[in-house]
């Protein structure tokens, strides 16, 4: 019973965090074709800024979370303007600039914080009991934040004017220009939201698991898997793919031990991709 509950909550938390980070990545990719390989380090940056604000400045945790989100999201606007926008349509240079961002941020964090594994203080303490089952408040809070944010983003994309403009751009960039949509402003907004979400996920995961300079690489791989399994251009697909990935990552280690469980997860994903060469909900993309 303990194990089932622990696995289930772990599944929900991992899935919601993967989806949070992947959404920001998917916004940029489906709108402007930017393969943002730096999204992983932005997630890492969020965790470290959160930690710095809490430990070095002694801020309240929730305030720190909010500030981190704003700082990283603003940094996202800067990235969009100076690093992504000049190279839209040039896949090779986008990949290169993302590696530059990754190297700079990772080295910077390495120099300032060192390579040791750190972690944020938990966002909630105590254990919630119902009958024989018990769940830590931290897990509940983490998942709740994730779920609320996901609902909010879904609402934003589907119900607001800006969200609908984002969808229009991802369907037809030129058409959107001709319709008078301010593509630059919308893509800046999408990057703002995407980086903000990644930063929140970084803080939450930094408290739930741990912080390390290379945690971004791990998350980047997850995000790429998620986007591809979902199929490019599908927001709904990301939710399903996120659940698939989260369950593989939380359930498989119980069945298969060690590195073999990672290998199994990858094998399952590769087979899924070969069955549906365009992902489950996506369309073909030219590089």
């Amino acid at each position: 019973m303990e194990l089932i509950i622990a696995t289930l909550t772990n599944l929900l938390i991992l899935s919601s965090m993967y989806i949070l980070v992947a959404l920001g990545f998917a916004f940029l990719f489906s709108m402007l074709g930017i393969l943002n390989l730096a999204h992983g380090v932005i997630y890492m940056l969020g965790g470290y800024i959160g930690l710095t604000l809490i430990t070095a400045l002694g801020l309240n945790q929730w305030l720190a979370l909010l500030l981190t989100t704003l700082i990283v999201a603003t940094f996202g606007i800067f990235l969009e303007k100076y690093c992504f926008r000049p190279f839209v349509g040039d896949f090779n240079r986008i990949v290169m600039i993302c590696v530059v961002i990754t190297v700079v941020l990772q080295t910077g964090v390495n120099i300032i914080a060192g390579t040791q594994i750190l972690s944020l203080p938990p966002f909630a303490e105590g254990i919630f009991k119902i009958g024989p089952a018990s769940v830590s408040y931290e897990r509940i809070v983490t998942f709740a934040i994730g779920a609320v944010l996901l609902l909010a983003v879904t609402w934003f994309v589907n119900r607001t004017k800006w969200g609908q403009q984002m969808q229009a751009i991802s369907q037809d960039l030129e058409g959107a220009y001709l319709q008078g949509i301010n593509v630059h402003r919308i893509s800046a907004l999408a990057t703002f939201i995407g980086c903000g979400l990644a930063a929140i996920a970084g803080c939450l995961m930094g408290a739930y698991l741990c912080l390390g300079p290379f945690m971004g690489d791990f998350m980047l791989v997850k995000v790429l898997m998620l986007t591809i399994i979902a199929g490019v251009g599908s927001i709904g697909g990301i939710f399903i793919a996120g659940l698939i990935l989260g369950s593989l990552d939380s359930v498989l280690p119980l069945l298969v031990s060690g590195a073999a469980s990672n290998a199994t997860a990858i094998a399952i994903l590769v087979v899924l991709l070969l069955i549906r060469p365009q992902g489950f909900f996506g369309h073909e993309v030219e590089l």
Binding site: L35, I228, A259, A260, N262, A263, L273, L274, P277, Q278
Partner: peptide, 24 residues
């Protein structure tokens, strides 16, 4: 069978899988 980005990503997953197999 995979084209463009899907090929790139499929091969990326394969590469990660290889490393995991070596670890295992």
């Amino acid at each position: 069978r995979l084209r463009a980005l899907y090929y790139a990503m499929g091969s990326l997953f394969f590469g990660i899988g290889v490393i995991q197999i070596i670890y295992a």
